[in-house]
């Protein structure tokens, strides 16, 4: 019925235990891709291989045994891949936040007590107050709802955590806390984090892998260095680089110096700039004038 393809020719290979950021303009197919990761959507052509699960194309005409196998694969897959939806109000459905947080653990075979404990832990992890647990998820504020939706996925302790724009609707502080939480999960507990965001600057300090989606295709795939080396491609994909990155690009052009191998945090960036300036001063014969010129160039 629909002749339009959501994704076509999309090939992505993601490393386990890594922190991957998926970026792309609105409507580029990010959410569509994420929904494939736990089998909510299934490819019409091509196949998915996640952990040791394999999903071939779903033609809708599969036989009975094949359908059974597929259902078993999906059940296993969903236990290990948790998906946080783009809109939390689309994800929550139970009468109380507590029930919602327990839903996953109960389905995955935990006892009632274990599930309640997992729910409480996940809520604490996200900084959700205990008093909110007995409320209806729809009585929460937008940001609280977002946190509840994330907690509901974390409660089931999946190995791969997939989040669709989890920071939108959160205040600055919570945003930073969430990203640090995710970073720690990947660093300390070996979780694989896959996150969609519209704010490149917020993931740059944490992500070690990037995928840029444009018109349903992955146009860039690699670390931050590779990403920043292709500003034209990014511009074409509708991604605006954050000011700090634009400054680095401009500096590297001004000083005819190569870009750093990877994203630099503010301290490292300052050191890199200092290096550029000193190098430049040395090249022009230790001339203090040239050094000042360099500083002016930065301010321009």
């Amino acid at each position: 019925m629909f002749s339009r393809l959501g994704l076509s020719d999309l090939t992505v290979t993601l490393k386990e235990k890594s922190f991957t950021a998926i970026i792309g303009a609105s409507g580029s197919g990010k959410s569509t891709m994420l929904q494939h990761l736990n089998g909510l959507l299934q490819p019409a052509e091509g196949s998915l291989a996640i952990l040791n699960f394999h999903l071939g194309p779903n033609t809708g005409k599969n036989g009975r045994s094949e359908r059974k196998l597929r259902a078993r694969t999906l059940a296993g897959l969903r236990k290990r891949v948790g998906l946080v939806f783009q809109f939390p109000e689309q994800q929550l459905f139970e009468a109380t936040v507590q029930d919602d947080l327990q839903f996953g653990p109960l389905n995955f075979g935990y006892s009632k007590q274990e599930a309640a404990e997992l729910a409480r832990k996940a809520a604490a992890l996200l900084g959700l107050d205990d008093s909110l647990l007995q409320r209806s998820p729809f009585e929460l504020s937008g940001g609280q709802m977002r946190k509840a939706a994330i907690a509901a996925v974390l409660a089931a302790d999946p190995d791969i955590i997939v989040l669709d724009e989890p920071t939108s609707g959160l205040d600055q502080e919570s945003r930073k806390e969430l990203l640090e939480l995710l970073h720690n999960l990947s660093r300390l507990q070996g979780k694989t984090i896959i996150i969609v965001t519209h704010r490149l600057e917020e993931v740059l300090p944490y992500a070690d892998q990037y995928v840029v989606i444009h018109h349903g295709k992955a146009v860039v795939q690699g670390n931050s260095g590779l990403l920043l080396r292709q500003p034209e491609l990014l511009a074409e994909a509708g991604i605006v680089l954050p000011p700090s990155i634009r400054l680095m690009l401009a500096l590297s052009e001004q000083f005819h110096a190569p870009l750093p191998e990877e994203y630099l945090n503010p301290e490292k960036a300052a050191a890199w700039i200092k290096g550029l300036l000193l190098n430049n001063a040395a090249m022009s014969g230790g001339d203090l004038y040239a050094y000042k010129n360099g500083v002016r160039a930065i301010h321009r």
């Binding site: 736990n38 059974k68 999906l74 996953g104 389905n107």
Partner: peptide
């Protein structure tokens, strides 16, 4: 359908 999807994604499984 939306709620069904949300439940499936968090492990609701009818088969078997």
């Amino acid at each position: 359908e939306r709620i069904w999807k949300a439940q499936l994604s968090r492990g609701l499984d009818l088969t078997g």
